[in-house]
């Protein structure tokens, strides 16, 4: 099986999750209104012109994500203990588009239909001109950083594609986010249990 075919099969197993009800932070701004975004405590934000269109379906490393709204209200979940309900099913991976205010490791809790709960690590690298410390895939890169009063060249803003395993062979029903203001999730996609080859 070729890489493209493999990727296509993987995409066929993936279901973007609707997280619209949980978005509570605006991290993307237009060059004409840089103050509208505040990913971090300094009011920095991603530059919209380097990112996909809001609401578009994007593929990163073969995984489809529903890209959040751009310059149209909150665009990400800043982790504050939200519970993201999912369509119950057997899944192997939770894929996320995410970024962190400094390199960060925390824990998400996976709830299953049988009442069991598993904690799994969510590891996200820094968004501020940083490398993929946890081996993520670079999903998108804003080549400039928006500051509240100007557009800064030479400081890119990074958005990462990371994944979390679902090790339990049971029906996943939801994901509990940690309480960690550093962590931002822009999109979530579940990869169903299945054989790729």
């Amino acid at each position: 099986m070729t890489g493209i075919a493999m990727s296509s099969v993987k995409a066929g197993l993936c279901d973007p999750v609707d997280i619209s009800g949980h978005r509570n932070n605006t991290a993307i701004s237009a060059a004409t209104e840089t103050k509208a975004g505040a990913f971090n405590v300094w009011g920095n934000s991603f530059a919209a012109e380097y990112l996909p269109a809001g609401g578009s379906l994007v593929h990163v490393d073969g995984v489809p994500f529903e890209f959040p709204p751009v310059c149209d209200g909150p665009d990400n979940i800043r982790a504050a203990g939200q519970f993201i309900g999912v369509t119950p099913g057997r899944y192997d991976w939770i894929h996320v588009l995410a970024a962190s205010e400094r390199r960060c490791e925390d824990t998400i809790e996976l709830s299953f239909a049988d009442g069991s709960v598993d904690a799994e690590p969510l590891r996200i690298s820094d968004f501020w001109a940083a490398p993929a410390w946890f081996g993520e895939v670079k999903a998108f890169e804003s080549l400039v950083m928006h500051y509240p009063h100007h557009v800064q060249r030479g400081v890119p803003a990074m958005m990462w594609a990371q994944r979390v395993p679902v090790t339990r062979r049971a029906e996943l029903t939801g994901i509990l986010m940690p309480r960690n203001v550093a962590l931002h999730v822009f999109a979530v996609t579940l990869q169903r249990h299945g054989q790729l080859a």
Partner: peptide, 16 residues
């Protein structure tokens, strides 16, 4: 390194 990464949660919870 996990110590360093856990400092992120504490420092930024404080900052915000």
């Amino acid at each position: 390194e996990a110590v360093a990464h856990a400092w992120t949660g504490l420092r930024f919870t404080g900052a915000h």
